[in-house]
Each structure stands twice: as structure tokens, then as C-alpha cells.
Nucleic acid binder design. Structure first.
Lengths: 168, 168
DNA sequence: TATTGTTATACTCTATAACTATA
DNA sequence: TATAGTTATAGAGTATAACAATA
């Protein structure tokens, strides 16, 4: 039974919509982040690092579902800007523990502020309550799909986007 | 008033989440669409074409927020597979009216079916009601942000994703 | 002259394979 | 031998500029 009950949902495919909207946001993000010297994927990486507090590069790669080799270049750029720091894990010297620096935390904050304007443009059709709902749903989908192997691995590659979510 | 009330929303940035989830869906979409000879952007283009019913290439470019030059190659691929057809507009012979073929309509249907499995994997943390909510919000955001110049241009570059939305 | 579509080209993003060091 | 990280390289995606046809 490789095909689950996909009967009625045929007319409700979110994939293309998600792709389209993500593209719209990303195009605008590229623009608003230029003054900060950042690009969209930098923002995603910084967000994850803030949420996880510090993790190995492979853990980061797993969370972002990016190839490990691309993580290297990405972190190199962030390290050049002194936004993150790499340090050897004392337990396993093969590992690099990646963490946000103070400068990184600060810049991430500025970037999120800049992103607000970009998102306003794309989500203009949604009122504040709807945007909150959207955020909650996206948040749940994102964190839920990364939890499966959380208990098994102490490297903490789960609940990446969760920490920044709703804790008020 | 270039900076709207972006005070409290600082902790609710949907951008990175959207980017991340779209990536997850796209990665899986690439896999499930291979047997059909399609790629994610083909699916998006076919979806728009079905919704719009037929439009110029520039209209398509505007809807997808893609560069017009990339539309050419994209349509070439779809035309090779006989999924779309180009015909000169009788009113303005500079324009190519792009339309879905029967084969294209059929394959799109199959593709959507295949996508269901991919989306199930990414949205596993959401129940059916939540997925419907998510779809509705994404749909509203996507269509709302393309409506602005709808009344002015009869080329119909608006309401692209809307037609496929909720009409039950 | 302006617009639609096209081609050619360069730039960025991403993935694959081979290498170094640690375990 | 297996794993974490790195490097080099090739492929796909995307944007910029110049061109042909039509208005």
C-alpha cells in the first residue's frame, strides 16, 4: 500500500503554493538583507543555530536537509563575518560545534526586523490573525517532521524552529 | 510609512519556515515526479496554466515571478513533451498564447496524485483539518498578492492559483 | 520607438566524489 | 573500518544583455 488515501485531497495540493510563496518571500528577502550582508539561507542557518544553541555541522545539515558540503561554505561565510564560531568538540574531536556569536545574534535580530517588511508584502492578503495561524501551522509542520529521531541522538537536531516559536 | 508596526511580530517570522518547508516538499517532489518526466517547476507552471486557461508567456512570467527568459526554456521542455501548445495571438502576433494540451491536463492530474504522498511526508505533523487550513491560508496569500492589477490588464495574470482552490 | 519572444552567456546554488583527521 | 569535516568539480537554476519579429 504505497499510495495512501489520496482521494479527495487531489484538489488541495499545497506544494505548488508553498513553492510559489516561498519564492516570493525569498526574492524580497534577498533585497532587504543586502544591507546586512546576508542572504536568505544565512538567515535560515542563523535561525536554526539560535534555536538549537549549538550543534555539529552534520546536525545542521540534517535539520536544513542540505548537503553537508554546502554547509561548509555557508558556515565559512558566516564565520568570516564573525557571526558564528566553530570549536572542536572535547568529546569527539572530529566534530565542530557551531555556535552563534553575539554579533550573529544581534545581526539576526536586525535581519528579522528587515524581513517583516518583506513578508508584509507577500502576506498582504492575510490579516494579523491569519498570519499567526499560518505561522503556527508552518511551525508545527516544521518541528513535527524533525522530531522522529530526537530521543535517540543527543546531538539535538530536533525542534530547530520550535524554540523561536510561541513561548509567551 | 515604510516601516509598518513590526513590533511584536519579530518572534513570528514565517519566511524561514516557509523556505524550509518548501525545500522539503520540493526535494520529495523531485523524486516522485521523475517517473512522470516532470520537475517541480513544471508542476507549478502546469498548475498556473490550468487555472488561467491560456495566457501569454509574459503573463506567466509575471505570475510565477520568474524571468521571461527562463519561461522560454521551461515551455520548450513542456512543449517537447506535448504538454502545452503555443499559438500566435490573432490580435497581437507578437504574443504566444500558451495552453495546456489534453496530455498536459492528464499528466498534471497524475502528478498531483503523486505529490500527495510527498506532502504527506512533510505535513505529517498536521491533521487533515490543519492541512486544509494551511491550504486555505496559502491560497489566500497567493491569490491576494497577485490581484492588484487584475482589472487593468485583460491578459489575465491574476487569480492563478485561485481557480484550483475551493470550489466544492 | 516599444513590446514579445528568443538566444547566448555568466553567475549562483546544489550535489557527487575524493581527501584528511579522528574514532 | 567508519565518521566529521573539507576540497574540487560538475550539473542545474537563474539573471543579464543583445537580437528578431511585430506593433
Amino acid at each position: 500500500m504505497t499510495s495512501p488515501p489520496a482521494a479527495d485531497r487531489q484538489s488541495h495540493r499545497s506544494g505548488p503554493l508553498l513553492d510559489h510563496l516561498a519564492r516570493r518571500v525569498r526574492l524580497r528577502a534577498e533585497t532587504v538583507l543586502v544591507p546586512l550582508g546576508l542572504r536568505p539561507r544565512h538567515l535560515v542557518a542563523l535561525t536554526v543555530l539560535r534555536a538549537q544553541g549549538g550543534c555539529s555541522q552534520q546536525s545542521l545539515a540534517a535539520t536544513l536537509e542540505m548537503d553537508g558540503t554546502n554547509i561548509v561554505g555557508l558556515l565559512n561565510e558566516l564565520e568570516t563575518g564573525d557571526l558564528i564560531a566553530r570549536r572542536r568538540s572535547p568529546e569527539d574531536r572530529r566534530r565542530h560545534i557551531v555556535e552563534l556569536t553575539l554579533a550573529g545574534t544581534d545581526l539576526l535580530c536586525q535581519a528579522e526586523c528587515a524581513m517583516a517588511a518583506a513578508e508584509d508584502e507577500v502576506f498582504g492578503a492575510l490579516d494579523q490573525a491569519e498570519r499567526e495561524s499560518l505561522y503556527a501551522l508552518l511551525s508545527k509542520a516544521a518541528t513535527g517532521s524533525e522530531i522522529p529521531c530526537a530521543a535517540a541522538d543527543p546531538t539535538a537536531e530536533s525542534a530547530a524552529f520550535c524554540a523561536a516559536a510561541d513561548h509567551d
